[in-house]
Measured scan of single mutants.
Amino acid sequence: MEVRTIKVFTTVDNINLHTQVVDMSMTYGQQFGPTYLDGADVTKIKPHNSHEGKTFYVLPNDDTLRVEAFEYYHTTDPSFLGRYMSALNHTKKWKYPQVNGLTSIKWADNNCYLATALLTLQQIELKFNPPALQDAYYRARAGEAANFCALILAYCNKTVGELGDVRETMSYLFQHANLDSCKRVLNVVCKTCGQQQTTLKGVEAVMYMGTLSYEQFKKGVQIPCTCGKQATKYLVQQESPFVMMSAPPAQYELKHGTFTCASEYTGNYQCGHYKHITSKETLYCIDGALLTKSSEYKGPITDVFYKENSYTTTIK
């Protein structure tokens, strides 16, 4: 009895394709271990004539594949690729409408935090270190965002349907971005203890939790000093293409032309909904596939993004 075979390709990165001759009487799992086709788990399936010449994702289970996976995804987590594939199996079914010149995501599976993050990423200057993220990001900007969303979920250790947080998501993504040249110098002034300067680099240099107003941050924000008295913390120097200011959701007025974009969060910790506000020729609110415009805006804002380049204080 002759062994019926077909020729397929296996890959971990969709760049390096490895030619395989597979036995049609055995499952993919018996031949390769966990195997995925377009995100779908085909591990328990036997090869079919229609699979001839198709590319299958496999887990990096030998040295060659491990090197290829690390170079593309910059992670050695053995569960990463499987999590990416199972997320992709959902995100490829989502709709990605162009809204006001940006790629958004039609609401499904509690994905409003991903839509808000995706919209924000198209408006701030950011370059990702893992080629996987950078490639998928370019495709997302062009309207094909399924891979990018699935990668975000995998890097953030999230599953489809789980509630997510924009600030946490951005923080994970910033860790995989090139923020080497970003720098922030802060000064804390206390009447009792004097003053202390701190220099922050990388992710810490672009994120701040405690106030939404970048102007206020430049002037000074009140913080408790270690001595128990009130101290003032203010920005001395900022070198970065953008800054992200966050605070627990509270009524906040966004003035046209003073910011790049913002995240609105309605609801409580267990259950809520994100919308995205962007400042173009007027203010726009993007909620999944829905767009509304207004000249002014007041609502429960939790993150505001500002364009920056270089700032030095005039406070002496």
Rank of each mutant, 00 (worst) to 15 (best):
E2Q: 10
V3F: 14
R4A: 13
T5S: 13
K7S: 13
V8C: 12
T10W: 09
T10P: 07
N14A: 14
I15P: 06
T19P: 14
V22R: 04
D23H: 10
D23W: 13
D23K: 14
T27D: 14
T27E: 14
Y28D: 05
Q30A: 13
Q30E: 14
Q31R: 12
F32L: 12
G33M: 02
G33K: 03
P34S: 12
P34Q: 11
T35D: 06
T35I: 12
Y36W: 15
L37M: 13
L37H: 13
D38H: 11
D38P: 06
G39D: 09
V42R: 06
K44I: 15
K44V: 14
K44A: 15
I45T: 13
H48N: 14
N49S: 13
H51P: 04
E52G: 12
E52W: 11
E52N: 12
G53I: 07
G53L: 13
K54V: 11
T55H: 10
T55N: 09
T55C: 10
T55F: 06
F56C: 06
V58A: 07
V58D: 04
V58T: 10
L59Q: 11
L59N: 14
P60M: 06
P60K: 02
N61Q: 10
N61P: 06
D62R: 08
D63Q: 10
D63R: 08
D63K: 07
T64R: 10
T64W: 07
R66A: 13
V67S: 14
H74T: 02
P78K: 11
S79V: 10
F80C: 04
L81R: 05
L81M: 11
G82Q: 15
G82P: 15
G82V: 15
R83Y: 06
R83M: 08
Y84A: 03
S86I: 14
S86L: 12
L88Y: 15
H90Q: 14
H90V: 12
T91W: 04
T91I: 06
K92L: 11
K93W: 08
W94C: 03
W94V: 00
K95C: 13
Y96M: 04
Y96A: 04
P97K: 11
Q98E: 12
Q98T: 14
V99W: 12
V99G: 07
V99N: 07
N100G: 14
L102K: 05
L102Y: 08
I105F: 02
I105P: 01
K106N: 10
K106A: 15
A108L: 05
D109V: 05
N110K: 04
N110Q: 01
N111D: 03
L114G: 04
L114H: 02
A115F: 05
A115Y: 03
T116C: 13
T116M: 06
L118G: 02
L118R: 04
L119S: 05
L119W: 02
L119D: 05
L119R: 01
L121D: 03
L121T: 11
L121Q: 01
L121I: 12
L121F: 08
Q122I: 05
I124C: 04
E125P: 11
L126H: 03
N129L: 07
N129F: 04
P130W: 02
P130A: 11
P131V: 04
A132I: 03
L133G: 04
L133H: 03
Q134T: 11
D135W: 08
A136W: 07
A136K: 03
Y137H: 07
Y137E: 05
Y137N: 03
R139P: 05
R141V: 11
G143L: 03
G143S: 03
E144C: 10
A145M: 03
A150L: 02
A150H: 04
A150N: 03
A150F: 02
L151A: 02
I152E: 00
N157Y: 07
K158L: 03
E162Q: 11
L163T: 15
L163Q: 08
V166D: 02
R167V: 02
R167T: 03
E168K: 08
M170R: 02
S171I: 12
F174K: 01
F174M: 07
Q175G: 08
D180Y: 10
S181A: 15
S181C: 12
N187T: 10
V188P: 03
C190F: 03
C190A: 01
C190W: 01
C190T: 00
C190N: 02
T192Y: 10
C193K: 05
C193H: 02
G194R: 02
Q195W: 09
Q196K: 13
Q196R: 14
Q196W: 13
T199G: 05
T199R: 08
K201S: 13
G202W: 00
V203Y: 15
E204I: 00
E204P: 12
V206G: 01
V206Q: 02
M209K: 15
G210C: 01
T211W: 01
T211I: 08
S213L: 03
Y214P: 04
Y214W: 09
F217I: 14
F217W: 07
G220R: 02
V221D: 03
Q222F: 09
Q222K: 12
Q222C: 10
I223F: 14
I223G: 14
C225S: 01
T226W: 07
T226H: 14
C227Y: 01
K229T: 10
A231M: 02
A231D: 01
A231R: 02
K233H: 10
L235H: 01
L235D: 00
V236M: 11
Q238K: 01
F242D: 00
V243W: 01
M244S: 00
M244E: 01
S246E: 01
A247W: 00
P248K: 10
P248S: 10
Y252C: 10
Y252E: 06
Y252M: 13
E253K: 08
E253M: 09
E253G: 08
L254V: 02
K255W: 06
F259E: 01
C261W: 00
A262S: 01
S263I: 12
S263D: 05
S263R: 01
E264T: 07
E264C: 07
T266S: 13
G267R: 06
G267Y: 09
N268V: 07
Y269D: 15
C271D: 06
C271P: 03
G272K: 00
G272S: 00
H276L: 09
I277R: 00
S279F: 01
K280I: 10
K280T: 09
E281G: 08
T282C: 09
T282V: 12
L283I: 15
L283C: 09
Y284I: 15
Y284L: 14
I286S: 02
D287P: 02
A289V: 12
L291I: 13
T292M: 09
K293E: 14
K293D: 10
S294T: 14
S294G: 10
K298S: 14
F305E: 00
Y306D: 00
K307C: 14
N309C: 11
S310R: 15
Y311M: 10
T312S: 11
T313P: 09
T314C: 08
T314F: 14
